[in-house]
Nucleic acid binder design. Structure first.
Length: 286
DNA sequence: AAGTATGCCAACCGCTGAATC
DNA sequence: TGATTCAGCGGTTGGCATACT
């Protein structure tokens, strides 16, 4: 029995498939084959036509989704790498829930996959912190804890590879994802202790975010401040540069209200300087 | 070992904007 | 110019797998 049919616990009969409305549910191997064959010959697009002519009793939408998320060549499956996770966090901070835009920067990854990752992993973190995923608190946590931690993990990974005398290139050099040039050319650039996830380092990102001032390079002053004082001073006197959200819908939003880091720390979030509880939380997730 | 909770992911649904008639 | 169709996107759901009690 087809595994996907088994997964959903039902299989339509022939009569259901014929003339009883379009078929829904998991795709069978035969359907996959029909769709793949058709698209190989005729190319993508015209999904309703493709569905009919390929002999599939499916909607065009269903065919398109199946192709994009599963059948399309170069679809990457399996766990997201640290680099990909970092990229998702960065991109989401800029783009919000525009999954397709985010997916464009992660070759082989689908918007659905990224969306699922965000909902299952990232939103879970927000839930455990008892804060809304769109809240200032959560965004700051992500920015000040998780992104730096991910960067650090990547740096550590890179160093371990270096220790192996570069017998094999780091994963981010050999992988398919679009890795920042600076990272592949010089780990020290990317993995500087004060490293700020820099949107500008990726040509792909630059393309996507063109004509926008890169807010990431402006974050240096706020990244892991040596103490909360500098941060709060900057925010209070407005001297700190203020990243703009391109869409205006949402971003970090910190330039509007600032962040009461001391209060957050007192409330137990304690992520200034590491935040062990959060670190362990993140580690559990990864 | 059995029951329950949670994670994960594939797929569907509904909305929106663009293209076409 | 309005109606219709289509493609694409984001949100949501359903069900299996696994972990936990």
């Amino acid at each position: 029995m087809d595994s996907q049919v088994r997964k959903y616990g039902y299989a339509r009969t022939e009569s259901e498939d014929q003339g009883m409305g379009v078929r829904k549910g998991p795709w069978t191997i035969d359907e996959d084959s029909l769709l793949a064959q058709y698209i190989t010959i005729h190319g993508e697009g015209h999904w309703n036509t493709a569905a009919r002519r390929a002999g599939l009793n499916r909607t065009g939408k269903s065919c398109r989704l199946r192709w994009l998320n599963y059948l399309r060549p170069n679809v990457r499956r399996g766990n997201l790498t640290l680099e990909e996770q970092l990229l998702i966090l960065q991109l989401h901070s800029r783009l919000g829930n525009r999954w397709s835009k985010i997916a464009q920067q992660l070759p082989g990854r689908t918007d659905n996959e990224i969306k699922n990752y965000w909902r299952t992993r990232v939103q879970k973190q927000a839930k455990q912190l008892k804060c809304d995923v769109n809240s200032e608190q959560f965004r700051d946590t992500m920015r000040y804890v998780w992104i730096p931690q991910l960067s650090e993990k990547i740096r550590a990974e890179s160093e371990s590879h270096m220790d192996e005398l570069t017998a094999s290139p780091p994963s981010y050099c050999s992988g398919q994802i679009d890795i920042p040039v600076a990272a592949s050319e010089s780990g020290s650039d990317l993995f500087d202790p004060n490293f700020i996830p820099d949107m500008s380092v990726s040509s792909a990102l630059s393309d996507a975010l063109d004509a926008q001032a890169s807010p990431w390079s402006d974050l240096t002053d706020y990244q892991n401040p040596p103490c909360g004082q500098y941060y709060s001073d900057s925010m209070q006197n407005g001297s700190g540069s203020c990243p703009e959200n391109d869409s205006g819908s949402w971003g970090w939003g910190w330039c509007q209200d600032g962040v009461d880091m001391q209060a957050m720390e007192q409330e137990g979030y304690g992520f200034i300087g590491g935040g062990e509880s959060l670190e362990s939380l993140w580690n559990e997730e990864n």
